[in-house]
Simulated assay, not measured.
Amino acid sequence: MLAYGIDIHAHKAALKNELPTIAVFGNGLDTLYPGQHRETARKMLDRGGWITENPFGTKPDAHNFPARNRIIAGLCDALIVVEAAEKGGALITAEIANSYNKDVFAVPGPVDMPFSAGCNQLIKTNKANLLTGVGDLEYLMGWNSAIPEPHRSGQLQLHLLSPEEQQIVRLLQEKNAPVGVDEISWRTGIPQGTLASLLLTLEFNGSIKSLPGKMYGLT
């Protein structure tokens, strides 16, 4: 994953900002492909690394890359598709990420641009959340400590809620940021089947709101 385009730009931006970054190869670790990005790849060893499931001597043949994409999807917290044609590796990775229940985002583009067709299709078919800037990602993933229009706790009448509903609301108040369904279930100990019904009830009574990416926040 040192390809021209968004891949290498993402690695370089991470290194520039002193963030860890990982390349997932579709070949053996004894081959750097493309070779023009050798310098960037070597810098990544000090801040991140390289990963592959292929043994030494494996060439960067085309059939290796779709298989590699499942590792990318498995490693990420969220997958962002910046540009994609109607068919290609980015869409394969997005499909795999969705099957892993990962959050998928896509940057929309002009309807007449070939390399925006894949992103627009992902958004249109609800296979990706629309992403217009880094603020969207921070908010929807709960990486930002502050959320727009924070809920006024005094407006919530907790005594009218069931004990389990109170657990959910208190968790969202403590986090003060969107929280995913899996985390709500884990932190409250409420089974997923029961949780789905409770979340729906809380939505109906205006206590919480559903957000893209299987997240929930206070209204």
Score class of each variant (00 low, 15 high):
residue 197 S to W: 09
residue 107 V to H: 08
residue 199 L to M: 01
residue 195 L to I: 01
residue 198 L to T: 05
residue 107 V to R: 09
residue 213 G to M: 07
residue 219 T to L: 14
residue 9 H to M: 13
residue 145 S to I: 06
residue 150 P to L: 01
residue 92 I to C: 10
residue 70 R to N: 09
residue 33 Y to S: 05
residue 93 T to M: 06
residue 175 K to Y: 06
residue 89 G to F: 08
residue 200 L to V: 08
residue 122 L to V: 02
residue 68 R to L: 10
residue 61 D to H: 06
residue 167 Q to V: 04
residue 196 A to K: 12
residue 59 K to N: 03
residue 75 L to T: 13
residue 139 Y to K: 04
residue 186 W to K: 10
residue 135 G to Q: 04
residue 145 S to T: 08
residue 87 K to P: 00
residue 152 R to M: 09
residue 32 L to W: 09
residue 113 M to R: 15
residue 182 D to M: 14
residue 208 I to A: 03
residue 61 D to K: 00
residue 13 A to E: 11
residue 20 P to I: 13
residue 27 N to A: 11
residue 6 I to W: 03
residue 44 M to G: 06
residue 151 H to P: 00
residue 164 E to I: 13
residue 42 R to L: 15
residue 71 I to A: 01
residue 19 L to R: 14
residue 14 A to L: 04
residue 89 G to E: 11
residue 173 Q to R: 06
residue 81 V to G: 11
residue 20 P to F: 10
residue 199 L to S: 01
residue 157 Q to Y: 12
residue 152 R to K: 13
residue 33 Y to I: 04
residue 65 F to C: 08
residue 101 N to C: 12
residue 70 R to W: 12
residue 22 I to G: 01
residue 185 S to D: 02
residue 50 W to P: 03
residue 141 M to C: 14
residue 63 H to W: 14
residue 41 A to V: 05
residue 167 Q to A: 07
residue 173 Q to K: 05
residue 5 G to S: 02
residue 95 E to F: 03
residue 189 G to E: 10
residue 99 S to Q: 15
residue 141 M to P: 00
residue 51 I to C: 04
residue 70 R to L: 08
residue 112 D to Q: 13
residue 86 E to C: 02
residue 170 R to T: 07
residue 137 L to T: 02
residue 138 E to S: 04
residue 77 D to E: 12
residue 41 A to W: 09
residue 131 L to M: 14
residue 109 G to H: 11
residue 33 Y to F: 10
residue 186 W to E: 10
residue 147 I to R: 09
residue 175 K to L: 05
residue 93 T to R: 06
residue 76 C to M: 07
residue 207 S to Q: 09
residue 185 S to T: 08
residue 100 Y to C: 09
residue 155 Q to D: 12
